[in-house]
Design a protein around this nucleic acid. Structure first.
Lengths: 235, 235
DNA sequence: GTATGCATAATTGTATACAAAAATATCGTC
DNA sequence: GACGATATTTTTGTATACAATTATGCATAC
């Protein structure tokens, strides 16, 4: 986790990165909900940066499909349509199959152990910390992808997973992710056994289950104060 | 091509879009080569916009993997490493297989005809207009992806194709794309015959051929004047 | 009570200003 | 002439200013 890996830094300075990370986490953990308005001034004020930075971050999140931007209307947390949701799930499955195909040929004992530790984290978070549990469930897939060794694939999986949490926030009932954890364990087991097909099948099953859960519509459109939420993420 | 499709517009105003389109085309057509410096002032001056806009565009291109950005050092056309190139090709193949799997179940006669017309364009451009030929060869795959009906998939294929032209610019010899055109035709034929597996095989073969071509290193690092190149794209 | 128009406020789009960093040129020394 | 330190220029990072657009509130008419 805290290995001495220097971040290669993609774009501009490091100031924008903390805003990006904060906003992103707020979205992933469903503190900010689909449809929420992201006013540049408000965000800038909370994070202590100018609109210039905020704008950069919003554009980046927009490129990743996490926020919608309309000309002269500003940015909101994205509200994927059902058809978009299907596209995301299909693409995600396609990518994650490739991840497992790769992994089952090159996975090491270290990798397995790292995955195993992650699932333990998930289990713990599932009891205490709701938001973290959501995030960790997604991060299991991101970890898998990064272990695959294909950076491009990993980036795309990352995007798909992020967008999925948006979709779940929109369409799924407040799920208990216990089942998720079991399915994650099955994937690890299949990888450990070197059974490529079983791993892919487990992933298929897992993602299908997630997809199915996202069928019951429910819209929780209450009045929400973005400022108070952001305070917890501006650290 | 000029169907009445309104552009949903992703990010900010329409001013940045023309800069984006211009720069992107310059990269795809290999007028701007990997490693070329993209000074904000220079671009802004040529396109008649401020650095603010240019910066937005560069960030976007960076997110798509077409330009590299280093803090305090600015932007350059990306120079994918060989390992990155492998990642791109692998991911691209994974995505395009999915495109064909989808298409072979839903392709219409109109789709086929549209693809056929595109290949005709390619053939023509191959004789007269070098840069356009490069671009059109890639756009065949983008057209396929967009016909698949999965927007997410289409966006990723688009990105992969763009990055491939960078890779080809870097590692491949100045290829004649005649063979490409034949292979495109084979894919269409397989789709027309409703033969899903043949289509996927043809695509596999095609992409493997492209991959193989990108093995011979050759570095054409001459002094190049970005200004004169941009004049042709600032329209 | 609902709708319409206008005045006002809030928000976005873009350019510009200025500080910080990097690249480049200049000069002196050996 | 080569090398290195310093000054100058260029380029980037960020904030801010201002115009343009959109949203909001309020009064009036129906």
């Amino acid at each position: 986790m805290n290995a001495p890996v220097r971040k290669p830094k993609s774009a501009a300075g490091s100031r924008s990165d903390s805003v990006y990370a904060g906003l992103r986490r707020a979205i992933i953990e469903q503190a900010l909900m689909p449809g929420d308005k992201l006013t540049e001034d408000v965000i800038g004020e909370r994070f202590g940066v100018s609109r210039t930075i905020v704008r950069t971050v919003l554009a980046r999140l927009n490129a990743e499909g996490l926020v919608d931007m309309q000309p002269n209307k500003g940015a909101t947390i994205a509200q994927p349509s059902l058809s978009e949701a299907h596209d995301v799930f299909e693409t995600r499955m396609c990518l994650e199959r490739q991840v497992l195909a790769r992994l089952s040929e090159k996975v090491t004992a270290d990798d397995i152990e790292r995955l195993q530790r992650h699932v333990q984290l998930e289990t713990k978070a599932n009891e205490h910390d709701g938001p973290a549990a959501i995030r960790l469930a997604g991060e299991f897939h991101i970890l898998l992808a990064s272990l695959s060794g294909n950076g491009v694939l990993a980036r795309y999986v990352d995007e798909m997973v992020s967008r999925c949490s948006l979709i779940l926030a929109l369409y799924s009932r407040p799920h208990s992710s216990d089942c998720s954890i079991n399915e994650h364990q099955q994937i690890i087991d299949a990888l450990r056994a070197g059974n490529s097909q079983a791993a892919i099948d487990a992933m298929d099953h897992h993602l299908k289950a997630v997809t199915d859960r996202a069928l019951l519509s429910s819209a929780a459109d209450k009045h929400r104060d973005i400022r108070s939420i952001l305070d917890r993420y501006a650290s």
